[in-house]
């Protein structure tokens, strides 16, 4: 190894270490913070304290944890379920069924990806208000079910789905719906696992839209609660850290449960 190689190597490691530090530090800070008093956190104390239990007790006293977690979970799970069913069905359809217009329709869909949410937020709110859906679960769930990104993702993944599998299923007597539910979904389960992680995280962490349409305390999700804790007149950062940990756990669980499926390919269906 020449000196130059060594220097180059060293630089690569320094860079990687920096990146690792930057990505891990917030987690570290979150965990350390949950064991310290708000004053310690503000002072920048980076070692574990003895306040964890007190923080948890205070958190439980100021937040109706059960209803908050229920709201978050219900919204994220329902949305993820319907988004996957609807958007994967659309992606599958776009790839499998030929039509003179499909590329044009698809292009319009993709164009809509470039419209930022902020631009449709107000009209969407007005629409929801007219339908009397403000402060309901539906107001959060309905607008997100048809996800253009997920449709696109499934269309791309469907290109790898062997067409002869569909032919075989048709000869075996399945109709188009049965092919989708009995063959396509099980065969594409790694794609579904990846999409589940993406969609679940996006919905669990969703902030802006719930902030606008959910107006009473008993409807609030955990992201909203944490943000209101943090923006109080005298915010108790110990509580905020406890809340953040609680908010992070479910996404980690979803990720690790589904991770195994990621790796599984479609080995064996075709040579």
């Amino acid at each position: 190894m020449t000196l130059f190689d060594r220097v180059q190597r060293a630089m690569v490691y320094v860079l990687l270490s920096l990146a690792a530090f930057v990505s891990i530090f917030p987690f570290f800070w979150m965990i350390v913070g949950s064991t310290n008093t708000s004053a310690d956190i503000i002072r920048g104390k980076a070692s574990f304290g003895d306040q964890l239990l007190i923080n948890i007790v205070n958190f439980l006293a100021s937040v109706d944890l059960f209803s908050v977690l229920f709201n978050s979970t219900f919204i994220a799970v329902t949305t993820t379920f319907f988004t996957l069913v609807v958007s994967s069905l659309a992606g599958y359809g776009f790839e499998m069924f030929r039509s003179a217009f499909r590329e044009r329709v698809f292009a319009v869909l993709l164009l809509m990806l470039s419209i930022p949410f902020a631009a449709i937020m107000v009209p969407l709110f007005v629409m929801m208000a007219r339908m009397g859906m403000i402060n309901t679960y539906s107001a959060i769930i309905l607008p997100t079910i048809s996800s253009i990104f997920i449709i696109f993702y499934f269309r791309q993944s469907t290109k790898a789905f062997p067409g002869e599998l569909r032919d075989a299923a048709r000869i075996d007597g399945l109709n188009e719906w049965q092919i989708f539910f009995r063959i396509y979904i099980p065969v594409m389960r790694s794609t579904y696992a990846a999409a589940t992680i993406i969609v679940f995280m996006a919905n669990w962490n969703n902030y802006l839209w719930p902030l606008i349409v959910l107006q009473t305390n008993e409807m609030k999700t955990i992201t909203l609660v944490i943000s209101s804790l943090a923006s109080a007149y005298y915010p108790d950062f110990g509580l905020v850290m406890v809340g953040t940990i609680l908010a992070t756990l479910p996404t980690l669980v979803v990720f690790f449960v589904l991770q195994r499926l990621f790796v599984e390919g479609m080995v064996g269906s075709i040579k």
């Binding site: 062997p162 002869e164 075989a168 048709r170 000869i171 075996d172 007597g173 399945l174 099980p186 064996g268």
Partner: peptide, 19 residues
């Protein structure tokens, strides 16, 4: 319908259901 023609087909890629 393909399933009602009294035929069976063997495909080049075998097309076995992987699951």
């Amino acid at each position: 319908d393909a399933s009602k023609r009294g035929i069976a087909m063997v495909f080049q890629s075998y097309a076995l259901y992987p699951h």
